[in-house]
């Protein structure tokens, strides 16, 4: 028996929206640790890894490991029927061929359940080694989305160059070229900003993207890599999950684009670089 109840159903809805255009069918692995997914896009250029830890759910029960193969477009259709403030419960029997999504509104006076057929998906599971990356960039997820969107109107690929003081995004196309440089902001800017207001004294709030780029760089070695913007734009569909995005880069390795999911886990996207031959 698998049963997982998430109070903030909007998180699950957002997660699905962020991956459903990249991956068609995927196996969700339900274990005592949590609800996880690893899948490649159809071209095998990128990979998504999702982890929703059991401790982040309001209720979680997993008697034995279950693999649930789902069509993500169909799953998204079902989750779209849940309101953002609904609680969502997923249920499946160990040997069953359906998953049930149950939605409850905050007043608990409307309860819906949707059953979706599971599928057998034959897929290879890839081992992702722990890697020390040469460059780690943390920046506003809104800014990253904006940069990828803006550059994709000029070119198809982006070259990301990280130095200790800045991260530079470059593209070129038929109409010309573009460079966007985000300077590393001073220490501590990424965390929290203290704002003094007259009424309530000192108030702590997260910095908004409008106040700057909030770029934090951890660098072992300067790195320059080129990626297809189409995929990065797809990853940016996860923007609403987290205020910040973390990019990890190393020479000739896939970039890792990570969005943390508050108190629950993460969605990580891996994208293989383009190389000049």
């Amino acid at each position: 028996m698998f049963e997982a109840r998430i109070l903030q159903g909007s998180i699950l809805k957002k997660v699905l929206e962020s991956i459903k255009d990249l991956v068609t069918d995927a196996n969700f692995e339900c274990t005592a640790n949590g609800f996880a997914l690893q899948a490649m896009d159809s071209s095998h250029v990128s990979l998504v890894a999702l982890m929703l830890r059991s401790t982040g759910f309001d209720h979680y029960r997993c008697d034995r490991d279950v693999t649930m193969g789902m069509n993500l477009l169909n799953m998204s259709k079902m989750l779209k029927c849940a309101d953002n403030d609904d609680t969502i419960t997923m249920k499946a029997d160990d040997a069953g061929d359906v998953v049930t999504f149950m939605f409850e509104n905050p007043k608990a006076d409307k309860i819906s359940d949707f059953q979706m057929k599971l599928m057998d998906i034959d897929t290879e599971h890839l081992g992702i080694p722990d890697t020390e990356y040469e460059a780690t960039v943390k920046m506003s997820s809104n800014e990253f989305q904006r940069i990828c969107r803006d550059l994709s109107s000029i070119g198809d690929t982006v070259t990301i160059a990280v130095t200790k003081d800045s991260v530079k995004f470059t593209t070129s196309g038929d109409i010309g070229e573009a460079n966007i440089t985000c300077r590393r902001t001073s220490d501590g800017d990424m965390k929290e900003e203290k704002v003094k207001t007259e009424e309530d004294g000192e108030k702590v709030h997260n910095t908004k993207s409008s106040e700057g780029q909030n770029v934090d760089i951890d660098l072992q070695e300067p790195v320059t890599l080129t990626f297809a913007l189409r995929y990065l734009n797809s990853f940016c569909k996860a923007t609403s999950l987290c205020e910040n995005v973390r990019l990890q880069l190393s020479k000739e390795l896939p970039v890792v684009v990570q969005y943390l999911i508050e108190d629950m886990g993460y969605v990580r996207f891996y994208l293989a670089p383009k190389i000049e031959e």
Partner: peptide, 14 residues
């Protein structure tokens, strides 16, 4: 000429 690498060439199959 720029070519796109594949993700499976970086991570081994388990």
């Amino acid at each position: 000429y720029v070519s796109q690498l594949h993700i499976s060439s970086f991570f081994r199959t388990e």
